[in-house]
Amino acid sequence: MIGRLFSRTSRSGIGIITIALPLSMFVILSFTASSFFTAQNLGNVGNQITALLIVSLGQLIVAISGGVDLSVGSMLSLTSAIIVTFDPAIVVPLAIAAGCVLGTVNGIGVAIFGVHPLVMTLATATFVQGLTLLVSPVPGGVVAPAIEALAHGRLFGLQPSLFWCAGAILLCWLLLSRSAFGLRLYALGANPRNASLNGVKVVGPIITCYVLCSLSAVAAGIFLTARVSTGDPTIGAAFGLDSITAIALGGVQLSGGVGSVPGVILGVVTLGLATNGMNLLGVSPFLRMAATGLLLLGAVSLQRRKTIGV
């Protein structure tokens, strides 16, 4: 079983480093930062990484198809702006509708018009960010109590972030590892031509991937806005790069066909621990940003390339 897990052609993408990195970070931080191993701080880490985990799982779906979505950050910000701007009764359906539109546009651009995913989603990311700043130019606004409850209310005495994480993980795992859609997605991510020769449709599933990814950003946006209890038109700015870094750390191959939910969880934990650790150790936030860039570069260079689908 373990042999198969690490097989050269396994599609989980999980390697020794994927597992060792978060573990060693955990151990090192327990010793170096006195306030790290406390219930308070670990709860904080959990809260901090919830939104990133949700977005990264969406990013995973797109990455398996062989694409990438840079517009998740803007979608998250737009969701935040929508929640504090419109009538509380319609904000959630409105945000979901916006997510569907953005995902469909991204998907059509990539799958039908053949625009490179980086270019396509960078363009829509810029467009949506502009739109967000039009709707709500400055941070502020009030979040309706019903929505705040989504991140603050306690169910069975447990943190609501736990339910958000569990829900996102379960949905994504069912989709990728249990459904026919997931199996076909791995197939077309590895080699679209061969997948189509085997009777797998290509265009529809790719558009669906981008829609699901945008919806994950909407979900993360609702959670995050509820948690901070106010609107912020640039709250998602870092999520595009962070989610890509997280999945790369989780062994997801950005060329498609390789990646798994457990891998992404590990990647998100790694990035979350790195951020929290630097925070506790008093590292400048700008240096933290620089470190994220280096982590992405490191994670991508560690990937086995030309093994699958290239």
Binding site: S10, A187, A190, G257, T307, G309
Partner: peptide, 8 residues
């Protein structure tokens, strides 16, 4: 050129 998917 075989059409199998290597990751399946």
């Amino acid at each position: 050129e075989l059409t199998l998917l290597p990751n399946l």
